[in-house]
């Protein structure tokens, strides 16, 4: 057994290690803490949003080892050892020495006005980077399908697809 939280009813926090936006963190977590709640409530990384909290809206999308998932449907303890990238860390993924730039997808969202209220945007950004890492979507139809797990109540979809297409044409994610 790799980990055993102890006897039934024990309070049992568990020690885990996560690398979050490049920074290694040793954390004690209760097993029922979702990755989303850990990020927002414990680590003050409130860029990742809680929309539905049921995996239906995509606002909580983060990258785990480069792969996009819903952080609301993931227990933090299960991701022990993983590298997590949140919207706060996207710029760092694309950082070039001597610059203070955003990630290209962030630049493109600004350029294409790909949001209105902005609540879904962190999830849209992380999901876009994850989608480009996957490398399966090429056409606009395929981008729309691959981004269907991110709901935008303001309806900025057309501009979101424009922004993603723009970055893909420039060589994709970093």
């Amino acid at each position: 057994m790799l980990i055993d939280s102890g006897s039934p009813g024990g309070v049992g926090t568990i020690g885990i290690t996560l690398t979050i936006n490049g920074e290694r963190r040793e954390l004690q977590v209760a097993p029922w803490t979702t990755l989303l709640d850990l990020l927002r409530e414990r680590l003050d990384l409130t860029g990742t949003k809680k929309g539905c909290d049921h995996g239906q809206c995509g606002a909580c999308t983060v990258l785990v080892n480069g792969t996009r998932i819903n952080s609301c449907l993931t227990l933090a303890v299960m991701k022990d050892g993983a590298e997590i990238t949140t919207v706060e860390g996207l710029a760092g993924l694309a950082h070039r020495e001597g610059t203070n730039s955003l990630h290209p997808i962030q630049e493109a969202f600004v350029e294409h006005d790909a949001f209105q209220c902005g609540y879904c945007t962190p999830g849209q950004l992380c999901s876009s980077v994850g989608m480009m890492n996957e490398g399966h979507a090429k056409t606009r139809d395929e981008i729309r399908e691959a981004m269907s797990g991110n709901i935008c109540r303001c309806g900025a979809y057309t501009n979101i697809v424009d922004a993603i297409e723009d970055v893909m044409q420039q060589g994709g994610a970093r």
Partner: peptide, 19 residues
């Protein structure tokens, strides 16, 4: 969400035993 115990086995036999 209710509170629960958490175990992380490394083999199928351990998992079946834990269940």
């Amino acid at each position: 969400m209710n509170r629960f115990d958490y175990v992380r086995p490394s083999t199928v036999a351990e998992a079946v035993q834990a269940l």
